[in-house]
Every structure is written in C-alpha cells, then in structure tokens.
C-alpha cells in the first residue's frame, strides 16, 4: 500500500503541469505609462522606463504631424493580403488590391503580409526575408492560408474567412456602407532626428459593445523594390512591393480594449523607432479594432496614415 500511495502522489503531481511566471511583462512590448488620460506604450528599444523620460522625449524633440482619415461616420476597411515573393500568382492579387485602393481611397487600408512557404527566403534572388516573424506564421496558421491558396485576403476579417481576390471587391462593397461601431482616430508624430514615430490612437465606441475588442497596430512600408516571381513574366527584378507589413507593434493579437464607455475616447499612444533601412516617406502606421473572439476576428474600424 505504501508503494501505491507513493505512485499515486507522483501521478497527481504529474498532472499538475503549470507555468510559473516571474516576469509578467513581455520584454519586447513596451510598458504602459499613464499620463493625462493617455496610455503611452514605449518601445523598450528607446529605453524609457518612466514618465520623466517620456516627457523629455516628447518635449525635447520636434515632431511633424500627419492625421489619418475621418472615420466618424464611415467604416474603414482593412484588406490583409497574404503573399510571398516566390508566389507566381500573387502579383495578380496585388493588382486587384491596388485597383480597389484606387476606388475606395482612404476607406480601404491595404496590408500585404508575406507569409508561408512562398515567402521563405532562399539563396540568390530571393534571399531577403520579408516575413514578420513569428506573427505572420501565426496569422497564416490561424486563417488556414496554406490550405486556401495564394493570393488570399481577409477583408476586415469578415467571418474570419479568407476570400479569393475575385471576391475582395464584392465583400468590400458589402461593408463599405456600414455604420461604424466605433471611431478610430490616428495621428502620427514623427521625429526625423530620432527616426521615431509616435502613433496616437483615439478610440470611441458609439455604444458599449457586448463583444470584447482588441486594438492592433501595424507598420507597413510601400514601394519596396526587390525580386518577385510572376506566372507570366518569370523573375521580375525591381518589382514594386506595395504596402508590405514591416512590424506588428503590439503583439500578434494586439491589445485588449478594456473599460469601454459609450462616447468616451480611449487614448493610446505607441512610440517606436523606425528601422534604419525603412524609407520614412513610404512608412505608414495601420491601426484597427477587431473582435477578439477567434470565431469572428471581425475588424470593425481601421485607420492609417503616413508617418511623415
């Protein structure tokens, strides 16, 4: 019996797998600093850990301002295109994305996400890795991009379903006249001296939602010239890669929006440095609000603006 009790004790302990977390704050996401009803989230690379450092950064540098569009009465739509530089059919997807962009203007926010095997780098022409890891792999897996096929796109993540490029326009037309559930203001402050951008986001819900929503912030870069495979033209040198996802600023699934009150603005400002090899003139911040329920992921509002 004694032996059996020992075995039993070991069995019980074996079932109690648990992860002890000593440092709950992620190293790669800035910590919150609250000031004047604004939550500032400063990239750890800037090494600012307190309010004094934050105020010094803001006050002692000059900032140019660029505003995003006015979506107080309009639902802005985010088109996340999954692509890859070795995907021969993907340039057709990009053409459709640009066609729609020319129709809808600021209401449509295009993002090209390089993900999956077609985006993997290889020696020679395709050695550059444009994937934003690990996030793009998680998105690819979550939305089953590999089984759907390229080019594929999420139109404001409606029904968490990928759409073929031929359907993008149909879905966008469906969503374009929706009354927005929330307004998402976006304003970029850019410091050329520091090559740092402050993305200020103001979120106002018209009604207290029953769902829970997350706020996501991307950085994209336009007009990246590099090789691209194409079905008709083979390997294209200096292909114009458009609206490429460069950074997922606040985690794969963004930041949960809490304590939502109807009509009251939630103000969050992300402060981050741009990479040295990004062209500030072509860099945009893209923000959107989405339903955190994995069966939905519905993006209810978005906005974007060039950083300078």
């Amino acid at each position: 019996m004694k032996r059996e009790l020992v075995i039993l004790f070991i069995l019980v302990l074996g079932f109690i797998s648990c992860d002890e977390i000593d440092d709950p704050i992620p190293k790669d996401v800035g910590q919150d600093i609250e000031y004047n009803d604004v939550t500032y989230v400063v990239d750890p690379a800037l090494n600012i850990g307190n309010l004094n450092g934050l105020l010094d950064l803001i006050d002692n540098n000059s900032w140019t301002e660029v505003n995003g569009g006015d979506n107080s009465t309009e639902r802005f739509i985010v088109l996340e295109e999954f692509t890859g530089h070795q995907c021969i059919f993907c340039p057709n997807g990009t053409k459709e994305l640009l066609r729609l962009d020319s129709i809808y203007g600021e209401q449509l926010i295009p993002v090209s996400i390089h993900a999956g095997s077609f985006a993997e780098p290889s020696t020679g022409k395709y050695e550059t890795d444009y994937r934003v890891l690990p996030h793009c792999n998680i998105y690819q897996s979550e939305f089953n991009v590999a089984t759907f096929g390229y080019p594929a796109g999420l139109v404001s993540r409606r029904n968490a379903q990928l759409e073929n490029k031929d359907n993008w326009g149909i879905v966008i037309a469906d969503l374009a006249d929706d009354v927005p559930q929330a307004e998402l203001k976006l304003k970029n402050y850019y410091s050329q001296d520091l090559n740092v951008v402050r993305v200020n986001l103001g979120i106002t819900f018209n009604q207290v939602p029953t769902e829970t929503f997350n706020l996501q912030l991307y950085i994209t870069e336009d007009h990246i010239r590099d090789w691209q495979k194409d079905f008709a033209q083979g390997d294209i040198e200096n292909y114009d890669h458009r609206h490429m996802l460069r950074k997922v600023v606040n985690g794969t699934y963004g930041r949960s929006l809490e304590n939502i009150t109807a009509g009251e603005e939630i103000n969050i400002e992300y402060i981050l440095p741009l990479e040295a090899n990004w062209k500030p003139d072509d860099v945009e911040s893209v923000a959107f609000i989405f339903d955190s329920d994995p069966s939905s992921y519905n993006i209810i509002q978005g906005n974007s603006a060039h950083v300078k």
Partner: peptide
C-alpha cells in the same frame, strides 16, 4: 495570445 503580459 496576449501581447501585454507573458501568460502561463
């Protein structure tokens, strides 16, 4: 899947 905290 949280970006704010390292969750167990």
């Amino acid at each position: 899947q949280d970006s704010r905290y390292v969750l167990p």
